[in-house]
Amino acid sequence: MPINVRIPTPLRKLTKDKDVVQASGATIQDIIDSLEKQYPGLKERICDERGELRRFVNVYLNDEDIRFAQGKGTPVKDGDEISVIPAIAGG
C-alpha cells in the first residue's frame, strides 16, 4: 500500500515539482529505496555514500524524528505520513 511522503522545495526538481509523492515498503529504508526507483537521484540527496541519513536532513514519521525511533529500520504502515525536512540553520 502506498504511503505519502512530503518532499521539501529544494528536492522537488527531482520529483517533477510534486510536493507529495507515494512510496511503498515496510520500513523507512524500503521507502527511500522505493523513492529512488521512481525518482533517480533522490536517495543521494537524503543519504550519504554509506547509505546513512545525511546529518542535516530530518525524516519525520507522523511528526516523530526517526532518529529517535529505529532510524531507517523504523517500521511504517498504511496511513502513515512521512516528511523529509532539511534541518533549519540559524541561531
Binding site: P10, R45, R54, P86, A87, A89
Partner: peptide, 10 residues
C-alpha cells in the same frame, strides 16, 4: 547562501 544545495549541510 548558507545551506548546501546538494546535501543541506551548512
Amino acid at each position: 547562501l548558507h545551506v548546501c544545495e546538494f546535501c543541506f549541510g551548512p
